[in-house]
Design a binder for these strands. Structure first.
Lengths: 337, 337
DNA sequence: TTGTATGCGTTATCAT
DNA sequence: ATGATAACGCATACAA
């Protein structure tokens, strides 16, 4: 196999200067004769421009980063499905970062921005530390954060009203006559964990229901630990009649436990969760879940970033996606497991 | 915000030449005094090396591409989860390509290899056309294909014995006493579709069962069409007692239909599928599914690519992952929907 | 040990 | 319209 062709190779073959080659390749005005010679030489050699050289010269990488804690979570999946085509259509490649639920990893990604291998970054931080804020401010490329950031942070921001989301679910359960509504949450030192914790208490208060610490259990955001946490809660509260889970994966774990314990869902225990991923429609019974608009958030993030990449500086923007309760059989079904 | 620092900036600040800066930054022997001056200058300026310049010089991008038809399919997910950490540990970033179930898109990705924005590529082609083979041969970067390719194709290759996988499932259903085993497949002009089609016929023959075209229905690899195809099949074959689905998503659609039609699973119709994704354990009843070792295939692909990137040329290698039947309640459970 | 100078492949400026 | 040349940021061969 011959050497990789460059514009120099083409120039020799076509008997013109590299400047002419570059011009032809970039569609700048050129004499027809020159153009055809260059084009055919390029075709014959199978020329493809070198992206590193291009990036060095143009100071643009045509790449966008997407940093998430864990690709296993279907919420992120829904986002990627929206983001990828938008980026591709705009001529950007997608560099995927999985940060292993590790704040230090997130910082590394932010620091990496300095290498300029991406023109912008979409990130979903699990926690927003002071270190994060410092990096946001110093970042040399536009950043879009999905999730809440403090007022005034110099990044575009896509958020959802998870407080309202939790309230929708709790009110729904309350309307169904449930009064002992348990809550299985993820870690309290994460952005979603903290928000949902506060929102749960708030929602109860709004309905005049007492806050009972026994009704709350904290684990992580995954199915196995969700099952364990749900088991602890169920074991502790005999008269539990509803369970709100902080995401669908936790809810799957809870359903596992309820099935094992032969508690009928929803007759004895109604189960609601959050995120409304595909899993909600696969589970049995199908899960009532609060959609936090994952797809919309992904799309909005991509659009914000592309807009900024195309039009340069402007004031940071905040897009808020409304939560929406999707009612399924795990709260109102006539069929149980 | 000040300008982005380069080694030139550092050199000025430290009062040394750019060569010394480069040497220090790359850990080459330097006088302690020089080293400390360069290091502190770099730290103060917040220097981060420019990846484009590095790539141009080193002819390496430190990126690896992963091209799949559709990120929505959980099979690919399982692979990414293995691939990403391995690449990261080896110092490579992951560039994700979603090809929209479009062969032309796949060719585009292969052509893009010439831009040298990745050092290697892992691809799961849905179809392998002559155009694909031509690009494989001409590729200027190492390629690992997950899925079968013709003998002698100059790429590393990770495959699974889907013939055997189908046979495992069919034999399992046969052992359970099922004799009217339907098959819902994806498109026949895709690699997996074609292989599974042939394997189904073969497996029946091996068991002495007749091949009945009425028992076969073709759709795509997704849940909605899987449901429609299953509905056609069920409507056409009254004495159907088992259903093999070409993947888990199709099986979910089939379960939807069977539930709607009030056919008990597995008592009346046993359901088995392929891929053994997470969905198999979420579905109700949990799906008996043939694991094609998605995680192992992803890992093997990453290892093959990293090995080649590290050690250069060697003969193409083929890794085969054994299929494994995972039996769950959709074929042997006592409980149905 | 350190500095000078060159090249990686491209785009863009400036003459011609 | 075209060619010579500089510059992007870095690594390195060579000279000092």
């Amino acid at each position: 196999m011959s050497d990789v062709p460059t514009i120099t190779t083409i120039a020799q073959r076509a008997g013109v200067s590299i400047a002419s080659v570059s011009r032809v390749l970039n569609g700048l005005p050129t004499r027809a004769e020159t153009e055809s010679r260059v084009m055919s030489a390029a075709r014959e050699l199978g020329y493809v421009p070198n992206s590193a050289a291009r990036s060095l010269k143009s100071r643009r990488s045509n790449q966008v980063g997407f940093a998430i804690a864990d690709i296993g979570n279907p919420v992120y999946l829904a986002m990627i499905r929206e983001i990828q085509p938008l980026l591709k259509a705009a001529g950007y490649r997608l560099v995927l970062h999985s940060t292993n639920v590790d704040a230090a990893d997130e910082i590394d990604v932010l620091r990496g921005l300095g290498e300029r291998y991406v023109d912008g970054l979409i990130m979903i931080p699990l926690r927003v530390t002071g270190e994060h804020l410092k990096m946001f401010a110093a970042a040399r490329a536009p950043i879009v954060i999905i999730g809440s950031v403090p007022e005034g942070t110099p990044v575009d921001n896509v958020r959802t009203d998870s407080r309202k989301g939790v309230r929708l679910a709790v009110e729904h359960l309350h309307q169904l006559g449930r009064r002992r509504i348990g809550f299985v949450n993820g870690p309290l030192d994460t952005v979603p964990g903290a928000a949902r914790s506060a929102a749960y208490a708030e929602a109860l208060a709004g309905l005049g229901l007492p806050y009972d610490p026994d009704l709350v259990e904290v684990g992580d955001f995954y199915r196995p630990e969700g099952a364990r946490a749900a088991a602890r809660l169920i074991g502790r509260v005999p008269d539990l009649d509803a369970l709100l889970c902080a995401n669908d994966l936790i809810a799957l774990g809870a359903l596992d436990v309820l099935r094992r314990e032969r508690r009928r869902v929803p007759e004895e225990v109604a189960v609601a969760s959050m995120d409304d991923t595909d899993l909600a429609t696969v589970a049995w019974p199908p899960l009532t879940s609060v959609s936090l608009g994952s797809a919309e958030r992904g799309r909005a993030a991509a659009e914000l970033l592309l807009d900024r990449l195309a039009h340069g500086d402007r004031a940071p923007r905040v897009v808020t996606v409304e939560p929406r309760l999707v009612i399924r059989a795990s709260t109102v079904g006539e069929e149980g497991p």
